[in-house]
Design a binder for these strands. Structure first.
Lengths: 255, 255
DNA sequence: CTTCACAGGTCAACGGTGTTGTCATAAGGT
DNA sequence: ACCTTATGACAACACCGTTGACCTGTGAAG
């Protein structure tokens, strides 16, 4: 069974399902998204998707090599939807802020899908378009190539990471979320100043702000830092070189 | 079968496994962590864990209500380990950088646990100690309470969010991860300059850096922005320097 | 010592999952 | 009208988490 998948473009002999449905990559992705939204991320399995489509589960393997492939297709569709409503103005900071907030909002609107797809590189059309667009905001703004790539990377990952984090929070059952809010109020709001002076001193602020997402603040911090860097660059000296050369390792266990 | 779990403190009638192992909450958590480290995140299943322990899988349900409970126990242990090796020096930026990188590394070392616990507030001892410690770094540095809380919030969420994001990446099956690296090289590395000028211009940088985590960069941006903010505050208040408040920078006990 | 309740380990089963080898058939090109 | 073959269907495999019923060693009480 070397390869049972035929590229979407080359499909011709379509044939209806026993229940009369015409399968297609598009229909499968749409149905998967609907399934995720309506019944939660756990509701997405090959078998349920097959049932929802009116087709045998194994038929899906004619369109996607494995479930991972399907996830990538879903992720790309979400990227496309987000990008489609974004209109860059030429002010790099404003444009990035706008896009970041859109990405975050998009993730919150599709919590389960966002959680599933945030960490994947799809290499598909919409994603490529997004990369090109963001670099197209940074480079004309005056960031040198290497710097532009670094900021792009941090910006995108931060939007995706916070999107997934906040999605996970909002996807919790109602009771669990209220329990968490209660923890902040009753546990952190009442620690004695003798043992926990800093928490006690800031308790009102903690209780007030810990419930909302910190993404807007984090985004603003990122933009501030980028602007600072740009100012240093324009000052001519080139400024001090940032020491954030990627030292972290994503993937690959470190023995 | 209302509740087959007995609180750890009340256990007394321990009895060895058929293979002669004495089970305990601790042993189970330790073994689970070892399993994750040695054979990857996918290796952690109730059945495998049972096998590794020399016990019937169902025995574990005498100690944890379900797998989620086990994950939370693991996560709590991880928070403890991360804090235990952290030694604040008094330089707020350096201390936050150090802690952030430790949190991120801890998450990467145990992907499944990190992904599950990132968005939860436990209100338990280790977590409280962490909050107190971080505020104890920011406030003495001169950040006003509200500002300190805002930066604390962004800092912690950023560490958790990136930890979860990168964990998800590293939890992928080997083949999928190699496929992603290949996507960057073959897809993004070869786009023509006519259609995708910005990607083409930065392709070498993209290919070189997109595989590693952007957390160090994002963290550095956050610290830069915080320092900028602090400079503005000092300038605005006539350069008045807040002085260190003394002993209270550590939360709970430090073994 | 013996007795005895029951915590805790084991077994078997249920319903779920992703995936694949094989087969049947309708669609398209000739 | 034929033949090829793409594509849908079926059955099976090896896993998964979880649970109800059973059995037995343990620790305390008498």
């Amino acid at each position: 069974m070397t390869d049972r998948v035929v590229p979407a473009a080359a499909r011709q002999r379509r044939r209806p399902t026993k229940q009369g449905v015409m399968l297609s990559e598009e229909l499968i992705v749409e149905t998967a998204l609907r399934l995720i939204e309506e019944h939660g991320a756990d509701a997405l399995s090959v078998r349920r998707l097959g049932r929802a489509l009116g087709a045998d589960p194994s038929s899906l393997y004619r369109y996607f090599r494995h479930t991972d492939d399907l996830m990538l297709a879903i992720a790309d569709e979400l990227i496309g939807r987000t990008l489609r409503t974004w209109r860059p103005t030429g002010d790099w900071a404003a444009d990035l802020r706008d896009l970041g907030l859109r990405m975050h909002a998009g993730a919150l609107a599709h919590p389960r899908a966002a959680m599933l797809s945030a960490h994947r590189v799809t290499g598909r059309a919409h994603e490529i378009q997004a990369v090109e667009s963001i670099l197209g905001v940074l480079r004309p703004a005056g960031f040198p190539d290497q710097e532009a790539v670094r900021i792009y990377h941090a910006f995108v990952d931060q939007a995706l990471a916070f999107g997934a984090l906040d999605s996970a929070g909002s996807a919790l059952p109602r009771a669990a979320r209220e329990a968490e809010a209660e923890v902040w109020r009753s546990t952190y709001g009442r620690l004695p100043a003798e043992t926990h002076p800093h928490i006690a001193a800031t308790a009102p602020h903690l209780v007030a702000t810990m419930r909302s997402s910190s993404y807007p603040a984090a985004l603003e911090l990122l933009l501030t830092a980028a602007r600072t860097r740009l100012d240093h660059l324009r000052a001519g000296t080139g400024g001090r070189r940032p020491h954030w050369t990627g030292s972290g390792s994503r993937g690959g266990r470190t023995p």
